[in-house]
């Protein structure tokens, strides 16, 4: 993931309230989550359906592996990935925090 600058550093209101692109990444929406997706790596066929239908860009291929994982910094726990997974490799479990 590309590093974007912290928009809250030296915060002032610019003329026209112009902001830099890609800066919402500072907002870690993973804290909203109540249910957490977990993957059965043996059942995952790396089809990418979870990635396609994730509104939060949180389901991505795991580097060097043939399965997908979840970005817990941003996953809001909606559970769409569990619904669209063709091999039922994803389970939503209540997260213990």
């Amino acid at each position: 993931m590309s590093e974007s600058e912290d928009p809250y550093e030296n915060l002032t209101i610019t003329t026209g309230a112009v902001v830099e692109p890609n800066t919402s990444r500072v907002n870690k929406t993973g804290s909203w989550r109540q249910f957490k997706p977990v993957i059965n790596v043996d059942a995952c066929i790396a089809c990418g359906q979870c990635d396609t239908y994730c509104p939060d860009q949180a389901a991505k291929p795991v580097e060097g592996e043939d399965y997908y994982g979840f970005d817990l910094d941003y996953c809001k726990g909606c559970g769409i990935c569990e619904e669209v997974c063709p091999t039922d490799a994803i389970d939503m479990i209540r997260e213990e925090k």
Binding site: R25, V26, Q57, C78
Partner: peptide, 12 residues
């Protein structure tokens, strides 16, 4: 379309 947006979970 970056993560960190404040749409509700499961937003269409």
């Amino acid at each position: 379309w970056n993560p960190g947006h404040r749409a509700c979970a499961g937003c269409g």
